[in-house]
Design a protein around this nucleic acid. Sequence first.
RNA 1: GUGGGUGUAGCCCAGAGGCCUAAGGCGUCAGGUUGUGGCCCUGAAGAUCGAGGGUUCAAAUCCCUCCACUCACCCCA
Length: 422
Amino acid sequence: MFQAPRGTQDILPQEQPYWLFIQNAAEATARLYGYERIDTPVFEEAGLFVRTVGVGTDIVEKEMYTFKDLGGGQLTLRPEGTAPVCRAYIERGMASLVQPVKLFYQAPIFRYERPQAGRFRQHHQFGFEAIGEGDAALDAELIDMAWRFFQELGLNKLTLQINSIGCPVCRPAYLAKLKEHYDEHREELCEDCKIRLDKNALRLLDCKKTSCQPLSELAPRSIDFLCVECSDHFSKLKSNLRILRLPFEINPGMVRGLDYYTKTVFEIQPEEERGQSTIAGGGRYDGLIEQLGGKHTPGVGFATGIERIILNLKKQNVNVPGLPKPSVFVVWMGEEAGKAAARMVGDLRAAGVSAVTAFTARSMKAQLRQADGTGCHFAAIIGAEELEQGFITLRDLRTAQQEPVDFSKLVDRVKITGIETL
RNA sequence: GUGGGUGUAGCCCAGAGGCCUAAGGCGUCAGGUUGUGGCCCUGAAGAUCGAGGGUUCAAAUCCCUCCACUCACCCCA
């Protein structure tokens, strides 16, 4: 027996209403803020991610699906969405469009991880990127859009955390201070953190180990070391968020797992949740485009995990609209009626009415059961008598009311009632 | 990568070494109505008891290995 690869899942029909609901909300929100859809390839040159996400990060170090194709190139299944969009921005000359360029996407994301609740090897993200504008007003607008998106979905009890991790001007001095601080307490650090100290000191801040937490609380905070530009940027962000009435918290310990972030970083997560519960995360990446060989171009964006949103929709018992079922089930008895039924189903469909029927001669009981099971609103019954006199018996499966309807009037009759949704 | 839990029909699950030729419920299919669904009744199909090995006269049940799922750590959406 074949099984779906570890950490992947089939999205079954019963799950699809959630997906459609979220997709609709995301697209509506994107439109509201002037974002246009972009789709980039599922795989890219491995170097794109190695260079931007960062050599020392978990994603690059141990989570990428990288393979050699028949041409010998090293390709990687997209482990995150921002770098490909930036690549496309440069490659497709979007610098010559009106700035900022606002793009959104829905994309499968691949990371080789141990699966658990809300974590998969293939998951799906909606991502939003605004490239070509460095002002904090854009950061605030982006965060506002993320927030509105979740409101739109009906998710409550969310928290918004922000931080600023500086830029290449001010970060070196901060990192030096940070290392100094942790170096003094090297012996108290957990094993992982000792390694982090040399490789990526920022990561020390969000170690959850109880032994490391006191040290992190005493650690110097990046927001105290910001250069004038970053500091002004952060102030404007906070002020704009207040204007927009977004309830944010400053979390000086929040860092993100990708190296390209500058200045603003933020996360949205459900209250009273910890661990892998973050439903949206993002920030500014002012150096990314340049790093990829483009002109210096600021950018800011965020991504949200669809599977985690669904998890929360279910946890919060949010009602999502159901998908439409077929409207009419054509029941037939006898070979001749079967032919008429086939024609009738065709006519209904041609008129835009969703219709289904039985493929083999089955008892009326069986056909009506099937009609019931498929969720049809009507059963259009055609047997010897109907055939002879040119009408069908239209049964409303919810009220069990029946009426004779002329062949020629069937389409109009069921159209008036409208296509039913569950 | 590290630790814990769990694997019996499509789904939920009983079963704790011989009475298991593996029970029940949901679902599916059929019948109870010569042309009428949802409720009820009857019947049928559907399980190499996750895989492999071992212990035993005897294994779904005990032991070992592997695999998968799941939860947590790590990290992230």
